[in-house]
Amino acid sequence: MMTDAAQSRQRDGVPAFRRRLAGSRAPLLTLATLGMALVVLPLLGLIARTDWPGLLTHLRAPVVWPAIRLSLITTLITLGLAMLLGTPLAWLLSRATGRLATWMRALLTVPVVLPPVVGGVALLLAYGRNGLVGAPVFDALGLRIPFTPLAVVLAQLFVSLPFYVLAVEGAMRSVDPRFDHVAATLGASPTRVFLRVGLPLAAPGIAAGAALAWARALGEFGATITFAGNLTGRTQTAPLAVYVALQSDPQAAIALSIAMLAVSIAVLGLLRGRWMG
């Protein structure tokens, strides 16, 4: 029998232990490398199969520009709405403790885990011509929501708003509530506390949430094709155009994919440099 101290002295003195420690890193490295490869390889495949000299020609295929323009316009509107509606929601949730807040958080998680196609069906049943909200709107205003750019925005909001709210709520919860109390005792209204305390202190989290939500909206496919349909220039966003072009003009599909990749990296890089340090 050895004492703990003696045991540890013996370990320290045995070089074999160090070798074993070094050796034990190999499985971790292997798994980590494999994990990284699974993410990087498809991107490499995309880059390797791109016809770089002809990229500009492929980008001029009639399917490409209307899709990119529609995607940029709709995702920016989606992002604006997500921030306008999602930030107050995140703030209230971050300061709420009741059972209602727990339920609201659970509900917000649903679109995150729901298959997007199912989301599309749900949207159709809510906003469609015979839908819960869609039918009275259609009867009263003659406004048919599916097959319009508005439907594209609604589909993107459905999938990206929860991402935004959950990310921002996390950031706002880490803002010490004592700051709110101090501001309130100094006479600030709840709205003023939100604007002058919550927003500035959670800014990095808001930027991260915005980037995440925007990326999610840009990549949205299943809910859009199910709910908004697929018409060039009107509801055919970039991911839909990639899917359709792949069957007729693969190089245009690849060129469009490269364009989306470049735009995504540029925006994420910009956000990171500007707000996330």
């Binding site: 159709l124 469609g128 011509r129 015979n130 097959f147 094709i225 349909g229 697929n230 018409l231």
Partner: peptide
């Protein structure tokens, strides 16, 4: 002048059976 060109025949039919087209 279609409002949408759906990805396959079943999706196309579904738009009518759901009452959306």
């Amino acid at each position: 002048t279609p409002v949408s060109r759906e990805i396959d025949v079943k999706a196309t039919l579904a738009k009518v059976s759901l009452g959306e087209a």
